[in-house]
Design a protein around this nucleic acid. Structure first.
Lengths: 362, 362
DNA sequence: CGAGATTTGTTGTTGACTGCAACATATGAT
DNA sequence: ATCATATGTTGCAGTCAACAACAAATCTCG
């Protein structure tokens, strides 16, 4: 693997430099020297390498305010390297072309007929993304394993090789990640969950999934089918064939995706709506308890429509969770809502692409 | 971090060579050249470096049977680098000094008064381990976080800084890992679970814990308190304060650690014992369902007394598990018993030490 | 039994990379 | 205006892995 000897060292350092700038934004050469622990002359050599290849831009002469020669500012050139990110949902496909450094260069979306086949979703994605970007990543809600969507409540797909569908439609390779994991990556890298060592992102669409990011890395096989945690042994029959799944139990409360109406009604004093939210919160908390015990996160984000549920039923969620986790796991846990809103998954998909891209440079 | 420049490259390669030999046993220089992708001359230089420092031994002239000059065999010198591994249980402390390459150089154990304080366990460990080994690792059953035992059903400890206790008793630094994670590492590295990408090890002692190894690496915060997964909402009160924990529910079946008697009785036709085992298996399977959904393993090992439970109640375990996991997760799952028996945790603790040791050489 | 084929170890050379130190440069402070 | 300070630049030295040519040790085939 490490064939060209010392040349690999150079590549590693170059990739580290690019990654640093991509993640932390424009920095001076002096700051880069500090951050990467390399010598000034090395940084200069690497930066001028990357400036020559067009990836970086050096803006000279920024007055720092303090004494000494001002340091040259180094920043990414967004157009030099871009990633095509696509998010597939039940009703539409969204696309963003994200440049190096995180800037969104293009954005578009297309409606999807309800119950659309994987092939037509792939065609829509191909239409939007074309051949833009050096890497292409698609976020799909469900259980994703090596490019294959094993199970998706939201899309109604099972055992479908979406990576192959997309490749066939576009003539290029695609990475496929699940929406919740992508959103977790997005919130960690571009949201404000950067301090979390273990971040659990809950995504509420038509199905309930969860993504896990540990120390900044998406966990392999990390698409957790939160909706198919069994919360009621011998409970209601679920479409997946099991009994008492969280999804099946919550569905019985009837508000489905009209969570906003339900919260409004509850706010107006509708006792039935309030009860439904309360009991949903309890079920969610109970399912969460098992996931927390198994994964030990220190931050949980409630995304998609779970955001609304959490905001209006935080107390039952918390108390049910408290009844199902040990004190030590509970005490270090922060519950919050995401800051990227609907953009989390697209952002995270793009970051997944950049991680691969930068890793491949080494 | 990467201060000495190209010298780091050398260290990395040296560490890779040592790690390769430690993990895969004696190999010829030609095989090493192939495995590490380095040049023959580089391998020769690195190997003679490490032979000079006493870590490796080169046995020249082994006839290969095929044509060509016979390659020199390179192997680890066990005594050159050793790790002190200790396993703390409720009733005793076990010690092994493991040499580079995995050979056990010394072994001893001491009884522990029941309900022993952490300090006396640390003293016993110190007595056994002394100052042997370049690294010291202790395996403790329970929820371990950064050297602190947050919760241990088996030992009855909570929030105890065991790493500090051991350091005080021995005057050296200790790593503390949980027994289940250690056993998982052991089975992965020295057992026959090497092909598993995500390995879940279940450890049955006085408490039930689980350890997770993903692609050969122990998961941070990976000590899963399997015994405190809630399987019966509003179930029996558990010592931990929750209700319906797996541990509390199973305890009610009354055989506790006398699993062997129970299986014997069941084998003799004792209906009560058979029923207890059956229902234990069901509860275990149900708790496992949640853990499997959250972590997505492809191999599960039943260790400690759960081994006996699994061997005599595989059917209820499997059927309860099947009722609580999606088909895709279930289909790739292998259920087995460990091959290292009682030695798993000690072996894994030692491997954890070697991983740190070799990583530190880089 | 011997010559060639084959595989591997050894040695000297080469290209490349990073760190270092000295020098140049640009700003603020006195 | 001069000095202190911080940073970019340049030439040099040390180290490392790859490469190629050669030596060594074994097998095979005639």
């Amino acid at each position: 693997m490490a064939r060209p000897g010392t040349e690999e060292l150079r590549r590693r350092n170059r990739a580290a430099l690019l990654g640093q700038l991509h993640r932390h934004g424009p920095q001076t050469r002096a700051e880069l020297t500090e951050a990467l622990g390399l010598n000034r002359s090395t940084i200069a050599a690497l930066a001028s390498d990357l400036a020559e290849s067009g990836h970086l831009q050096e803006t000279t002469g920024r007055s720092t305010g303090s004494a000494g020669r001002p340091s040259t500012l180094v920043e990414c050139v967004p157009k030099a390297l871009a990633v095509a990110a696509v998010e597939i949902r039940a009703d539409r496909v969204r696309f963003a072309l994200v440049g190096l450094g995180g800037e969104v260069l293009e954005r578009s979306e297309a409606a999807l007929a309800s119950g659309a086949e994987p092939v037509s979703a792939a065609a829509a994605a191909a239409e939007l993304a074309g051949s833009a970007g050096a890497e292409a990543v698609a976020a799909v809600p469900g259980l994703v394993d090596a490019g294959i969507v094993a199970h998706s409540t939201e899309l109604g797909w099972a055992g479908r090789d979406v990576a192959a569908d997309l490749a066939a439609a576009t003539g290029r390779e695609w990475r496929v990640v699940d929406t919740a994991t992508a959103a977790a990556v997005g919130e960690w890298s571009r949201g404000d969950a950067h301090e979390a060592t273990t971040l659990l992102y809950l995504h509420g669409g038509r199905g309930l999934t969860a993504g896990l990011v540990v120390e900044g890395r998406a966990q392999r096989g990390g698409s957790i089918q939160l909706g198919h945690i069994v919360v009621e042994p011998n409970g209601r029959e679920c479409a997946c064939g099991l009994r008492g799944c969280l999804e099946a139990e919550m569905e019985a409360f009837g508000y489905a995706e009209d969570i906003e109406e339900a919260t409004l009604a509850a706010g107006m004093g509708d006792a039935a709506a309030r009860d439904a939210l309360h009991r949903s919160g309890e079920d969610l908390g109970r399912a969460l308890g098992a996931v927390v015990t198994a994964t030990g996160p220190d931050e949980i984000l409630f995304g998609g429509w779970l955001r609304e549920l959490y905001l209006s039923a935080a107390a039952p969620v918390r108390s049910a969770l408290a009844g199902a986790t040990l004190p030590h796991l509970r005490s270090r846990l922060r519950l919050r809502t995401p800051v990227l809103g609907d953009e989390g998954a697209l952002t995270g998909a793009a970051e997944t692409g950049f991680a691969a891209l930068i890793d491949r440079m080494r």
